[in-house]
């Protein structure tokens, strides 16, 4: 895939909605496409979070490795979503594992490039931070609802 094609993928992803073409160019510099097969690992807990991943196709599972029980998928991230935010905040290390659950395509944004672009442009920094916060808010609400075990008790 050519650089302009990758740039278009980034521009068309919901994560970059509201960003100007110049801002998209700034964060898409050095981006690459990652194709995964089902079961293929994308990253592992504790490893450096060097990229921000924009899922464009398929599902990637967020997993926790539990000794004796193996990897337990706790949620999935699908097309149109941002996968991971550990790249944004120190110590820039993943807190979970990520493994493809289907054929998946992602755009990997270089985290150093994105952070540098944000440091250089406070307006971009705010917009990127808001998008990440939007993702975190949605995941937090989802996690709270999952904890409630809504379908587990008494519902007839």
């Amino acid at each position: 895939m050519t650089e302009p094609e990758i740039r278009d993928l980034v521009a068309g992803h919901p994560f970059t909605s509201g960003l100007s073409p110049a801002e998209v160019d700034a964060i898409a510099e050095g981006a690459r496409v990652v194709d995964l097969l089902p079961g293929e690992a994308l990253f592992r807990e504790g490893r450096p979070a060097t990229h921000a991943y924009l899922v464009t196709h398929g599902h990637v599972g967020i997993e926790v490795h539990h000794p004796g029980r193996g990897s337990i998928a706790v949620s999935t991230v699908g097309a149109g979503e941002l996968l991971g935010w550990s790249w944004l905040l120190p110590p820039h290390a993943w807190h979970f594992d990520a493994t493809a659950r289907s054929i998946a395509r992602l755009v990997a944004l270089d985290a150093t490039t994105v952070r540098a672009a944000c440091d250089h442009d406070p307006a971009l920094d705010r917009r990127v931070a808001r998008q990440v916060m939007r993702t975190m808010t949605a995941r937090l609400e989802a996690a709270r609802h999952q904890l409630l075990d809504l379908y587990g008790h008494g519902h007839r």
Binding site: P14, S75, G78, Q146
Partner: peptide, 14 residues
Amino acid sequence: WPGAIGVVTGLLDG
């Protein structure tokens, strides 16, 4: 299970 894991509202995005 090969499908999505998460709450049903998450399916609205797709």
